[in-house]
Simulated scan of single mutants.
Amino acid sequence: MNVALVDSHCHLDFPQFAEDFTGTMTRARDAGVGMMVSIGVRLSAFDKVREIAGRADNIYCTVGVHPHEAGEEGLSTPDILIEKAQDPKVIGIGESGLDYYYDNAPRDAQKESFRAHIAACRATQLPLVVHTRDADDDTMDILEEEYAKGAFPGVIHCFSSSTELAQRALKIGFYISCSGIITFNSATAIRDAIKDVPLDRLLVETDSPYLAPVPKRGKTNEPGYVAHTAAKLAEIKNVSVEEIARITTDNFFTLFSKADRSLLSTTGASGQ
């Protein structure tokens, strides 16, 4: 088939890709991945993220501070995010959110920075890329409070939460992004939650270099492996892989409306 997939969340600036970046891109193309978004996690590393996005027409990026980094680089105002978002390659804000599993940053700092990112999304109308782990209630409470002040688009990335969180996110217009986690044997509850998410609100991602899907589990994840996640999602939703590729790619361009669809590469598109 000729429907290209989009890896809506990867970290191409991470050192795991440094030695074989060209090979990584070639394998992604051969797997039918026509576009990638390299996600910002630290403002101090944004220049590298932006440089990588400049290496190919079909690579975009975001700007943001991961909750793990909120202690040292957390934001109190949206100004720097709004400024960086003017770059034509920046199509989203984040990733930001709350992580109470590792608690690598004080929770108050995480919350303050999260709200600053939301303010940037409201100002730019670029989508918010949300990370949440063991913090579902606080994450959704903040999103709902802020949404009441003025709408903004967004996605719960690497969904690994409850049906309740998914449904609350859907009610404020958010999308749900599926990673390789949905292929794990232990992810029955996550797959059940995904069954209740409408097709027109789903994305796929790798979160590479982490969370390689079955049958690549244990290896360094890379954008080409999103094809395995798409295949599992097709099984969960009882549709063809081609349909999942078409729908998730359409959804990507609806949400990330700043991305230029004409730059989507279809070379090697197979949805394998």
Rank of each mutant, 00 (worst) to 15 (best):
A119V: 04
G268A: 12
K258T: 00
Y147P: 03
S38M: 01
I194P: 14
K237F: 10
G32Q: 11
E145P: 01
R55M: 09
I39E: 02
L233M: 05
F46W: 05
K84F: 06
V226W: 04
D7M: 06
V197G: 05
R42N: 00
R217P: 05
A187W: 06
L202G: 07
C10K: 01
S162M: 09
I172Y: 15
K232M: 08
E51G: 15
T254W: 07
E72F: 12
D57G: 12
Y225R: 04
L211Y: 01
N238R: 08
L263T: 08
V33G: 10
L126Y: 04
V241G: 04
V155S: 07
L126N: 05
H117R: 13
G71Q: 11
G173Y: 14
A116N: 09
D30E: 14
D141Y: 09
F46H: 12
Y100Q: 10
A53V: 06
A169F: 07
Q167D: 12
G74T: 00
I39Q: 03
S96Y: 00
P215M: 10
L81R: 05
V214P: 02
G224M: 07
I93W: 02
F256S: 13
E243Q: 08
S265D: 12
S160I: 03
F21N: 14
D7Y: 04
Y100I: 09
Q167I: 08
G94V: 04
V90F: 01
S262D: 06
A123F: 07
E164Y: 15
S160F: 02
V197Q: 10
A259G: 04
Y101R: 14
L43G: 11
V239S: 11
E83A: 14
A18N: 12
R122N: 11
P215W: 00
M25V: 01
T124F: 03
L128W: 00
T22F: 10
S179A: 01
E83T: 06
Q16D: 14
L199M: 14
Q16L: 02
L12M: 01
A169K: 14
V49I: 02
S186V: 12
R55C: 05
V33K: 10
E19A: 12
T132F: 03
R133P: 05
V33F: 00
P78L: 07
D138N: 07
A18E: 15
F114K: 00
R115K: 10
L203Q: 09
